[in-house]
């Protein structure tokens, strides 16, 4: 358990996603009596029900994230240059002493 920072085991994680890439095995560990399996995403926090494949640490490169943050940085730099050199330095009555 020393590796587990959220105090829940890796075993339970594996149990929640079927290994054949098919239907998630989420509801079967629940003790719900007389309740049908909820439809996908029906209650808060059930995104796991829609998992179709499990990606481990080595299978995942966050390339989409890299694209997003690079777009963000381009916006930041463009806006900064505009705000500093046009909006700010372009104004009258600047404090010079």
């Amino acid at each position: 358990m020393a590796v587990d920072s959220t105090a829940e085991g890796a075993a339970s994680s594996a149990a929640r996603v079927s290994t054949d890439g098919g239907v998630p095995a989420n509801a079967d560990s629940q003790g719900d009596s007389g309740q049908a399996d909820p439809p996908v995403d029906s209650i808060v926090g059930t995104a796991d029900d829609g998992i179709v494949r499990e990606l481990g640490h080595d299978d995942f490169d966050p390339v989409g994230t890299l694209v997003l943050v690079l777009i963000y940085m381009a916006i930041l730099i463009g806006m900064w240059v505009f705000m500093y050199f046009v909006e700010f330095l372009g104004r009258g009555l600047t404090v010079v002493g």
Binding site: D41, A47, G50, I51, R53, E54, F60, P62, V63, T65
Partner: peptide, 27 residues
């Protein structure tokens, strides 16, 4: 964002930005 992307990929998301559509936006 990478953690969220991981979720989207596990839910079948593909592409550079199309994976955003695979997120549970109804929640």
């Amino acid at each position: 964002v990478a953690s969220v992307e991981h979720g989207a990929r596990q839910r079948g998301g593909e592409g550079y930005l199309r994976w955003l559509g695979a997120l549970p936006w109804r929640d």
